[in-house]
């Protein structure tokens, strides 16, 4: 098993990194410093490691890093910065949609994938889109409120 130099594009930055074939995208990202991508169950049940690959939400724990070469990877840290947070990030903070915060990056990325496809989702669509992201602290009500609010913000913004 030989490592290979792999080029990963993460949050619009290019990384050249030597990786073994059995390295998951999750562990490659965390080793590169993207610790905003959380390692939870490591079997695709919890959604803590959700990232967007070419705009599609996937579990980073179930992808091999070699196969992510040449794809656009977006993590929650790439959505916005502390100075200029994404409306979803602002809404999660404002609505108290995080308690321990471990599930939050994945929740936000699943919500981002949903809003990209359905800018005005129904409650049922929100529930379905986040059904692979588990919160073990306190529940989902504030999370859905935050997404609904962010959707409104984004629709106002896009109308200018």
């Amino acid at each position: 098993m030989n490592p290979k130099l792999v080029t990963l594009s993460v949050n619009h930055r290019t990384h050249h990194v030597a990786l073994n074939p059995n390295t998951t995208l999750l562990s490659a990202l965390r080793d590169l410093g993207y610790t905003d991508v959380k390692s939870g169950c490591e079997k695709g049940d919890c959604g803590a490691c959700t990232v967007l690959v070419n705009g599609i939400a996937v579990n980073a724990c179930l992808q091999l890093a070699w196969l992510a070469e040449g794809q656009d990877i977006l993590t929650v840290a790439g959505l916005g910065s502390s100075d200029q947070p994404h409306p979803l990030q602002t809404a999660f903070a404002d609505f108290g949609a995080a308690q321990c915060g471990f599930c939050t990056p994945g929740m936000i990325m699943s919500a981002k994938a949903l809003l990209d496809e359905r800018p005005q989702p129904t409650e049922a669509e929100m529930r379905k889109a986040l059904s692979g992201n588990l919160c073990r602290c306190t529940g989902y009500a504030r999370i859905f409120e935050a997404i609904e609010h962010a959707a409104k913000q984004l629709n106002v913004d896009s109308r200018g």
Partner: peptide
């Protein structure tokens, strides 16, 4: 089927 991320991959 499973959840949205699993359906995507």
């Amino acid at each position: 089927f499973a959840n949205p991320m699993i359906r995507n991959a």
